[in-house]
Write a protein that binds this DNA or RNA. Structure first.
Length: 433
RNA sequence: GCGGAUUUAGCUCAGUUGGUUAGAGCGCUGGUUUGUGGUACCAGAUGUCGUGAGUUCGAGUCUCAUAAUCCGCCCCA
């Protein structure tokens, strides 16, 4: 039997896992800073529940199987489980309901660069009954900004748009019936040449003048305020457009009030998102110097979370960070530093068998003082012990030898500077704190 | 679902028009006098050359089949 891991499933070495987990905890902590409460739902659900909402693409990619007579499926994202959860517990939840969920999701698609069959999504959503204030859309922007800022990653930009704008614009052109197809095409504009884009619009049956006005519309650019001014100048008399513009304006204004730097937030009228359940604000996040990573955090506003499960209306806004992809791309581009192999602050090294007792006692005391320590019990040449300490990247070495046993002091060596001091217990705890 | 490529040591790869004991770097193990490392130097181990068949006196190298992996498209994080 040969040991191997399924394709599309990521496994990490300890020093990588430490960095991965660190990123995960920064994300979780940031989410909590904005008042989101944790939620965990099962990886497996009834197939009917998971497939209730979705179209053909999900059905093709979802892992589905039978156990006995029950049709089961593995969750494809965290949004459908959230919808189920809200439908199930809405009488016990307090709205606006803010939850975050960090968990693995499963998609049985062809693995490729940055595409996994099992990957972490880190979601936040704010759900309210009937109506959800638009300022939450700006808060979501602040969450995205704060997370990426704290993760200490390359320069990034959050691109924002409002689907009502393009929807209203298409209505004003009298081609609203083509909205879904046009949105999908607009979403691809950055990937395909302009002629191909126009060609595909022709295939949809759009007249020349309409194609040109659409192209002109999505190419409107400039600073956020300039774009808003240009949109206002268009003077389009359409309810959806007017609402969308007002919402976008509010989000931008509130983002400024929240203190988000202008250079990290950019209105882009060609951002539409492929998923058709978004109805208002949409977000995508890219690294300025690594556009090939794709969007590392996306989301948007939707009118109704749980329509398939219940009659009541629950509008919401949320985003998802694809942590597995993000980590994988950063690692592939050498943008992460892997140093420690251990969470320990110090490695205690008894010089020989007779000093193990002293080492065990010291380990106990240090751990009681809330200091993570490890002990090298394996007896070998001192040089080997040093090598081990080096490899696991532990910051301090505490040596227990005959001299130390006699004096009652501990030799504490800083592995980076090489500096070594004889310390008593209190001084040692102070140093390692 | 459609298309393209790759497969040689633990990892990354080299291997000339088929020719005898298949190589490098990194990593690994040991050593440079046995209480002081990360650098340097020395020595060493490791391969059914993805699998199966064929052509040939002879195949890592050519042909066919098959599998695995990777990369695009679609869709998405």
């Amino acid at each position: 039997m040969t040991a191997r891991t399924l394709q599309g499933f990521m496994e990490l070495l300890p020093q990588e896992q430490i960095v991965f987990d660190h990123m995960k905890s920064v994300i979780a902590h940031t989410y909590e800073m904005f008042g989101f409460a944790p939620l965990d739902t099962p990886v497996l659900e009834l197939a009917d529940v998971l497939l209730s909402k979705s179209g053909g693409e999900t059905e093709k990619q979802i892992y589905e199987f039978k156990k006995g007579d029950t049709d089961l499926a593995m969750r494809f994202d965290l949004t459908v489980p959230l919808a189920k959860y809200v439908a199930l517990y809405n009488n016990d939840l307090t709205f606006p309901f803010k939850r975050y969920q960090i968990g693995k999701v499963y998609r049985g698609e062809r693995p490729q660069k940055g595409r996994f069959r099992e990957f972490y999504q880190c979601d936040i959503d704010i759900i309210d009954r009937d109506e959800l204030n638009i300022v939450y859309d700006a808060e979501v922007l602040a969450v995205i900004y704060t997370v990426f800022n704290k993760l200490n990653l390359p320069k990034f930009k959050i691109y924002i748009n409002n689907r009502k704008l393009l929807g209203g614009f298409l209505q004003s052109l009298d081609i609203a019936d083509k909205t879904v197809e046009v949105l999908r095409l607009v979403d691809k504009i950055k990937k395909i040449p302009e002629e191909a884009f126009l060609g595909e619009l022709s295939d949809l049956g759009l007249a020349e003048d309409k194609k040109q006005s659409l192209l002109k519309f999505i190419k409107i650019n400039g600073l956020n305020d300039e774009i808003i001014a240009k949109l206002e100048e268009l003077n389009i008399d359409n309810d959806s457009f007017v609402t969308g513009l007002a919402e976008l304006k509010t989000v931008i204004t509130q983002a400024q009030n929240l203190g988000l730097p202008a250079q990290n937030i950019q209105i882009d009228l060609s951002i539409t998102r492929g998923l058709d359940y978004y109805t208002g604000t949409v977000y995508e996040t890219f690294f300025d110097e690594y556009p090939q990573f794709g969007s590392v955090c996306s989301g948007g506003r939707y009118d109704n979370l749980s329509s398939v499960f219940m009659d009541k209306k629950f509008p919401g806004v949320g985003i998802s960070i694809g942590l597995t992809r993000l980590f994988d791309q950063l690692r592939a581009n050498n943008l992460l530093q892997f140093k420690e192999l251990t969470p320990s602050k110090a490695l205690i090294v008894p010089q020989d068998e007779s000093l193990i007792d002293a080492a065990v006692k010291l380990a106990g005391k240090l751990r009681n003082a809330d200091i993570a320590v490890d002990v090298m019990y394996r007896q070998c040449k001192f040089k080997k012990k040093m090598e081990y300490a080096n490899k696991i990247g532990v910051p301090y070495l505490v040596i227990i030898g005959e001299e130390e046993a006699k004096s009652g002091l501990f030799a504490c060596k800083d592995m980076i500077t090489g500096e070594q001091k004889a310390l008593n217990l209190d001084e040692l705890i102070e140093t390692l704190k």
